[in-house]
Design a protein around this nucleic acid. Structure first.
Lengths: 216, 216
DNA sequence: TGTACATCAGTGAACGCGCGTTCACTGATGTAC
DNA sequence: TGTACATCAGTGAACGCGCGTTCACTGATGTAC
């Protein structure tokens, strides 16, 4: 009975195919559908091409017009999600800069943006940072998708004057520690929802201070 | 052909059944088999009752002699893994105490033990702390399995004298922050293996200092 | 302008597979008489 | 002591399902003559 409710849209409104020469549009629609499926996915729900096809309102084999196999679609999805992640943090940084923020304020703005994203989009967060759904893809690009996030963090830390008591002054190391701290907050919040958590952004700001120790 | 190699043991040496009155032994064997399967599981490999049965060298339906359903087995597995986790950290703490360590040294020993465990047993770590394999089980016990880990951390932090510069003195809050920091290090290490990581135990010690700020 | 044809954007049916679970059973072992 | 029977510890075959993927196809639309 629930299945029927699910199918109403698909069966009642059959998809009108793209015009000639615009077949490539479907590629983007499939990626978007996959992104939507991932965001609606429970922590251990399986991800399937068939659910993507249903979400895109196409027949399952149509996915193969644009992707050679399941993994090719997943690679494209990963690329899109990481690109969005880069953009989200850049927006946060620009806003902090517009408000007159220096390197510290901009770094903090990026940190808080990533925490908010993770809590609002746990499905996507787990795909991006917990290896969910996307298995060992041999494609080397996959490892590079997230690098811009890390290197921007290193740049900003480099601009922040070191405090006397700071444990390490290696910006790469501090950047990994900061990422770890933030990831830990987001990941535990998502995966241990029954615990009594203080507001995640408060924790995130606190841990950022602890690790980077800015002169405030 | 690999499948055949897999099966050699099972097909060549059929299991001899337990003696009368000792049927309960199989329950433990099944749990152990499931634990072994989980530890051998790749990040996105599916977990199945059939693979557990194969590992235990029994027929798949035999699982139902001792567990009403898949989830009942998973609950028992979780309970065992958390109990092991409690024990592992207690051992580390006892050793630190034997070496004359105070609350700070014992807390650090527990932290480092958890990091080592995570890196050596990523399959189990993901089940314990990333919600891998084990879905939304409604059983309320599941939420309580890990609580002793956290509360011991709170106790130890309470014993460590606060430093002047400490950002927060709430032991519960510090404990969550410490857990987050350590979890972040382990989880990212596991999930982003292509990055160029410094030794995880070094990072863990560093972040523990940053968060708890002991007087050394 | 009309028509045959090529091309394009998909689709429906089917495949083999592994899954969780059910069911009727088997065969060894202890027990009552 | 012998034997019928109950109990116990499992097993083999089968179910319906959803999965990724393949295959031959359909039907609308642009194009050459």
């Amino acid at each position: 009975m629930e299945k029927k409710a699910d199918n109403i849209r698909q069966t009642a409104v059959p998809r009108s195919r793209n015009a000639r020469g615009e077949g490539e549009k479907l590629r983007g629609e499939i990626i978007n559908a996959a992104v939507d499926v991932l965001s609606a996915l429970g922590p251990e729900d399986p991800f399937s091409l068939r659910s993507v096809a249903k979400m895109a309102n196409i027949a399952a084999p149509s996915v193969y017009i644009h992707f050679a196999e399941r993994n090719a679609l997943l690679l494209a999805v990963l690329e899109k999600l990481f690109a969005e992640q880069v953009e989200i943090r850049a927006v946060a940084e620009r806003e902090a800069a517009k408000a007159g923020g220096g390197a510290w304020e901009r770094l903090l703005a990026r940190s808080l943006a990533s925490v908010r994203f993770g809590l609002e989009n746990p499905g996507h967060y787990k795909v991006l940072f917990e290896g969910r759904v996307v298995p060992r893809l041999n494609d080397p690009r996959i490892a590079s998708f997230g690098l811009p996030l890390l290197s921007r963090s290193v740049e900003l830390i480099r601009e922040i004057p070191a405090q006397s008591g700071r444990i390490s002054d290696d910006p790469e190391r501090l950047s990994l520690l900061l990422w770890s701290g933030l990831h830990g907050i987001i990941s535990l919040r998502i995966n241990k929802p029954t615990l009594d958590w203080p507001p995640a952004t408060e924790l995130a700001e606190q841990i950022t201070c602890m690790i980077i120790q800015p002169q405030i």
